[in-house]
Design a protein around this nucleic acid. Structure first.
Length: 293
DNA sequence: CGAGGTACCTGACAGC
DNA sequence: TGCTGTCAGGTACCTC
């Protein structure tokens, strides 16, 4: 999925395209994507005629504040991405009405389409159907346990070095990469950016957080902010199937130093980047710049 | 509490 | 060509 920079990019795009629009109808060929309410007919009914007041992000969740004190939450998970444009249905498949970025091969897995009052559509493309969509009363969402337990936002000004250390302190042990990726520790960091942050900070992904020096913590804190901010600035990555809401690609790919670069030379020291697996995920790092000890 | 496995799903790609 | 195995942006949940 999109990680923090990709979700942030999506939110920016949505704000310029669907803010103040009203939902007219919804279509889906995979209503299981909608987790709340479970009944698709009810979801449709509740969403109809609601106006989008505000669009923002918390961790990797996209939140649409709607009229009537409702909130629509979309989590894109691994392969989901929201697109805004116009499609037409042919033989049960939705095809872009015009040539352009929306014809991108990764944009062909539309499973949920919101019809808006200006004739536009907002569609969820999701090859693996892992995405989740929920419609809440806003106060219930903000007060829910799942929402409250999300860790601090790393790009907010209030995310100081002290806050960073407090966040990591939620875990007494554990390997740094997994701790960084834990959404209850810090919001928004996934498999790509965790590898990039660790490369930037010159810290081995399997290093125990209990063994990190003050200097390493400082480097990790700076790298976290720097790498994520750069990701946002460049509009995210697009070597995966992530796309911006207009279907175009992000520009982070050229900045990638470690992730999916196994066997290629480290841009700092020339050593070949290594891939290891733990916690069910791949970690990419430079064995020379990022020593275990 | 941490670590590892499973579950949710499907597509791309490598190797035989 | 076609089968099989591996891998893929996340995260919740279960067991040891």
């Amino acid at each position: 999925m999109p990680e923090l920079p990709e979700v942030e990019t999506t939110v920016k795009g949505l704000n310029s395209k669907v803010l103040k629009r009203t939902f007219v109808d919804v279509w889906s060929d995979w209503p299981k994507l909608i987790k709340k309410p479970k009944d698709f007919g009810q979801f449709k009914k509740d969403l109809k005629n609601k106006k989008i007041i505000k669009i923002w992000r918390r961790a990797k969740n996209i939140i649409f504040n709607l009229s009537g004190n409702y909130s629509l939450l979309v989590h894109q998970k691994m392969t989901g991405h929201l697109l805004v444009g116009e499609w037409e249905q042919k033989d049960g498949k939705w095809l872009p009405q015009k040539q352009g970025p929306l014809n991108d091969p990764y944009n062909r897995f539309l499973h949920l389409i919101f019809f808006l009052d200006n004739g536009n559509m907002m569609a969820l493309s999701d090859a693996r159907k892992f995405a989740k969509v929920e419609l809440w009363k806003t106060n219930d969402l903000l007060g829910s346990e799942d929402f409250k337990k999300i860790g601090p936002e790393p790009l907010e000004k209030s995310f100081t070095f002290i806050k960073f250390k407090e966040a990591l302190g939620k875990k007494k042990s554990g390997r740094i990469k997994q701790v960084l990726m834990n959404p209850e520790v810090i919001a928004g960091i996934g498999n790509i950016y965790s590898s990039e942050i660790l490369w930037q900070a010159k810290v081995h992904p399997e290093k125990s957080i209990a063994k990190l020096s003050e200097e390493e913590l400082e480097l990790l804190y700076q790298a976290t902010k720097k790498v994520l901010a750069l990701g946002v600035k460049l509009g995210g990555e697009s070597f995966s199937d992530y796309r911006k809401p207009d279907g175009s690609k992000g520009d982070f790919d050229a900045e990638r130093k470690a992730y999916k670069r196994e066997g290629q030379k480290c841009s700092r020291c020339g050593t070949k980047i290594k891939r290891i697996k733990f916690g069910g995920r791949s970690a990419f790092f430079c064995p020379s710049c990022q020593p275990f000890d």
